[in-house]
């Protein structure tokens, strides 16, 4: 093997190690500071508990499996005769004990966010083959107006809310969208 070729290989190997190291550190912080605040909101239990990669939703800040062995079901609305809407109404009820919002359901598996790094989550979020064919503006509309998304900030009972206020989230989302959705 000519020496310069060996050098090239060495360079490729070491740069891919650097890339790998970058991926590992991205578990902690998003590469784009514009995505970081969004990542912190999207991975809050109010969002993540129904953006699971499992065949069931979770509940609580400790993200335990949903009681009553609730399952995802084929259309993300629960078992055929034990639907999410058997209990979840269009609003929080029973003095906040039972959370609710319009079209209560799990997010499809293509939108599972559990255990994703910020860059992975960012990519999944923007991938139109996974996100319901939404471009950045459609994502902005969905994430700033959808009633089920907004429920995250009015979850009822003593449930915690995401780290950013809803207006601050919309502002951060606007900045990210305007910048072309950097990951």
């Amino acid at each position: 093997m000519p020496p310069n070729f060996a050098n090239t290989i060495r360079r490729i190997v070491s740069s891919s190690l650097l890339i790998a190291a970058g991926l590992i550190s991205s578990q902690v912080a998003a590469q784009s500071p514009l995505f970081q605040p969004l990542f912190e909101v999207l991975t809050h239990p109010r969002c993540l508990n129904c953006h699971t990669k499992t065949d069931f939703p979770r509940q609580g800040d400790e993200r335990r499996r949903h009681a009553q062995l609730v399952v995802r079901g084929e259309d993300n609305h629960g078992a055929p005769t034990l639907q999410c809407s058997a209990c979840h109404q269009d609003e929080n009820v029973a003095d906040g004990a039972v959370p609710g919002a319009p079209h209560w359901a799990l997010a499809p598996l293509s939108m599972a966010w559990e255990e994703l790094s910020p860059s992975e989550l960012c990519a999944v979020l923007k991938d139109t083959s996974k996100n319901g064919n939404r471009n950045l503006e459609a994502l902005f509309k969905h994430m700033s107006e959808d009633e089920l998304v907004l429920w995250g900030w009015t979850p009822g009972g003593d449930r915690t809310t995401p780290p950013l206020s809803q207006p601050a989230f919309v502002e951060a989302l606007r900045a990210w969208v305007d910048a072309g959705g950097p990951c």
């Binding site: 009681a67 009553q68 005769t81 034990l82 639907q83 809407s85 058997a86 209990c87 109404q89 269009d90 009820v93 029973a94 004990a97 039972v98």
Partner: peptide, 27 residues
């Protein structure tokens, strides 16, 4: 229980089992 935890109040709403203890009449 009144909190959709036990199922004793189950009725059918358009054929779907539903916890009547948490469904407001307005819904």
């Amino acid at each position: 229980c009144g909190q959709a935890l036990c199922g004793s109040c189950t009725v059918h709403v358009d054929g779907q089992p539903t916890r009547s203890c948490v469904m407001p009449i307005s819904a």
